Computed example of a mutant assay.
Amino acid sequence: MALSVVATAFGGPDVLELRDLPVPDPGPGEVVVDVRAAGANPADWKRYSGQRGFDPSTLPLRIGFEIAGVVSEAGPDAKGPTGTLRPGDEVVAFRVFGGYAEQLLVPAKDVLHKPASLSFEQASGLLLAGSTALHAFDVIGLHGAGEGHSADTLLVHGGAGAVGLLAAQLARQRGVRVIATASPARHDQLRAYGAVPVEYGPGLHERVEALGPITAAFDCVGTDEAVDVSLALLAANGVDKNRFVTIAAFARAAAEGLGAIGGHGPGSGGHGMSPHVRPGQEFRDNARAELLRLAGQGDLEVVVDRTFPLREAAAAHRYLQTGHARGKVVLIP
């Protein structure tokens, strides 16, 4: 048995409860992971909020898509993308279901070895946000330096959030110029990653325009300001709207034929998804090992904003819902 967080109804964070749930023995191609850290994401609370339906047969609903921990048991043929898994291995797992737990049975195909240089907290917050950023680049067709054409200038809305921070770093590694919106308190951090920070709010269009033409835009916040400014700046530069992608403004994306990803859980299509953007599960799965390699060798920093005990999952989700998280929010069993 292991303590696990479940949603007992649809609604706000108050529906979350801790329950003692059985952990099955691992079968072929499976491992049991002792969870040391679980990444918390907006996709987690959206699962039980009712935004994607109210099917009572799904309750109680287990929460959490990404974890880091230690393999405690391994079934036969337990081999993941980075090799054979054995008890005692420090690992990262994504995509999982029910990661808010002390212990979890996971398919080996979704378990990768954790670089020793990454803490469990950092590792648990890397793969969903990092693969989201890379999927957005793929949808946009982001051009880096040395690819036979001029490098893009990318506008990132929500540059100080978990996805935005990784997007800024990953884009800069490609030689892309990054302009990122954030509150002034986060500007120095963005500059350290090579991005040009700009304050959001009234006058954003003019402030970004003064920094030079943008050729692509990635919206991590979902506000009308982010969408409107992006589309206007792209149009002014003769750039098609297909070089805009959002992970938050799903209603507008569906209504206006804009690029959107992650509309129904991490990486998949679904509610509010603009139909011309393909689901990205295979792409994101293939990105996992590379993200771990980059982070492990120090080329990618995972910023952990706050940690919460597992029993305070509801408080962690209330904090996520403020929209002011400065990096990853992580639960500690």
Rank of each mutant, 00 (worst) to 15 (best):
V31A: 05
G265D: 03
A160D: 09
L128R: 01
R306V: 01
V106L: 05
V5Y: 07
V329S: 02
A248T: 06
Q103C: 08
P309Y: 14
S117L: 06
L166A: 02
V15Q: 08
G265H: 06
G11P: 02
S57F: 08
I179L: 10
G99Y: 00
D20M: 05
F54D: 15
A9N: 14
R306S: 07
L320Y: 04
V111L: 10
L85I: 11
D110G: 03
D77S: 08
L134S: 07
R47Q: 14
L300G: 01
R326V: 15
S183K: 12
L234Y: 03
E225C: 11
D305I: 01
D20H: 09
D25C: 00
A116K: 15
L85R: 02
V139D: 04
A68N: 06
A7E: 12
A254V: 03
H276W: 11
V227I: 09
A260Y: 10
T246L: 00
L292Y: 02
H317S: 02
G280H: 13
T181Y: 13
G327M: 07
A210I: 05
V221T: 14
R19F: 06
A167T: 10
L233N: 00
G265N: 06
A192T: 15
A68R: 06
L190E: 14
S274M: 01
V208W: 05
T181Q: 14
D219Q: 09
A116E: 15
L291Y: 00
A43K: 06
V229S: 00
G148K: 07
V139S: 03
V163E: 05
G39L: 10
D44Y: 06
G222V: 12
E256C: 04
Q297Y: 03
G161E: 02
V208K: 00
A167G: 11
G69M: 04
Q51D: 13
R318F: 12
G270W: 12
R62V: 06
K46G: 13
T307P: 12
L3M: 13
V106P: 03
A9M: 01
V208A: 03
T307N: 07
I261M: 09
G194S: 13
G125R: 00
I332W: 11
T181H: 11
G50Q: 01
A316Y: 01
